[in-house]
């Protein structure tokens, strides 16, 4: 996974509250035996004119030319609530989203983001709104910069907000470790366990 240290990018506001994982990736889009191939289905119900078409809905924020190459989403509260499907995060990652800034996240979705290299940033509603207002003036130019080491979000005009993140999550994202990678940093402990246990329960 790509480490997340510092990232600057185009940010798209999707400020409605309770955007659930079925809105992020409708279940009908989960057809393949894969975590891949989901990017096209991202926000499919909003992004395309008809449910099963691929004709872009010009009114949807990610389809507007000024939001081309969006890598950051500014979301409403309880972003990613609903079904536990990890496909929602796989779809966001494949589309190119690196971070989501919102007043709050669905708990499993938050975990899934960290596990898949997407930084979930919690900032209060007012701050998210004011970042969105600045971005909207000129999205391609008014990009946001997120510095995970410093735990800051800085707008084009220089407004800065600090955010909190759990140390374990921060480390995983900074080092680009998925949870498997993180656990493998305990390889010595696992091997030692296996040796001792293998002597005890050798019949397994």
């Amino acid at each position: 996974m790509d480490p997340f240290i510092r990232h600057t990018g185009v940010s798209a506001p999707l400020l409605r509250i309770n955007i659930d994982t079925d809105a992020i990736i409708p279940s009908r889009e989960m057809r393949l035996v894969s975590k891949k191939g989901l990017g096209e289905g991202l926000f499919a119900s909003w992004r395309y004119v008809l449910p099963d078409s691929r004709e872009p809905n010009p009114d949807f924020v990610l389809n507007k030319p000024e939001y081309a190459n969006t890598t950051i989403i500014l979301g409403g509260n309880n972003f990613g609530c609903g079904s536990s499907r990890e496909h929602a995060v796989w779809a966001l990652a494949e589309y190119g989203i690196r971070a989501i800034i919102a007043p709050g996240f669905g708990a499993i979705f938050y975990q899934n983001c960290v596990r898949n290299g997407i930084l979930p940033v919690v900032l209060d509603n007012e701050t998210v709104q004011s970042l969105a207002a600045e971005v909207e003036e000129n999205p391609q130019v008014h990009q946001l910069t997120i510095d995970l080491e410093q735990q800051t979000v800085t707008s084009f005009s220089g407004a800065q907000a600090k955010f909190e993140i759990e140390a374990g999550h921060k480390e995983m994202l900074l080092k680009g470790l998925d949870s498997i990678g993180l656990t493998l940093t305990f390889e010595d402990d696992i091997s030692r366990f296996e040796q001792a246990d293998g002597a005890k329960r050798h019949w397994l």
Partner: peptide, 13 residues
């Protein structure tokens, strides 16, 4: 879950 199954297979933990 599916990701945990991957974790279990890769790390046996």
């Amino acid at each position: 879950g599916s990701s945990e199954a991957e974790h279990a297979m890769a790390t046996q933990t």
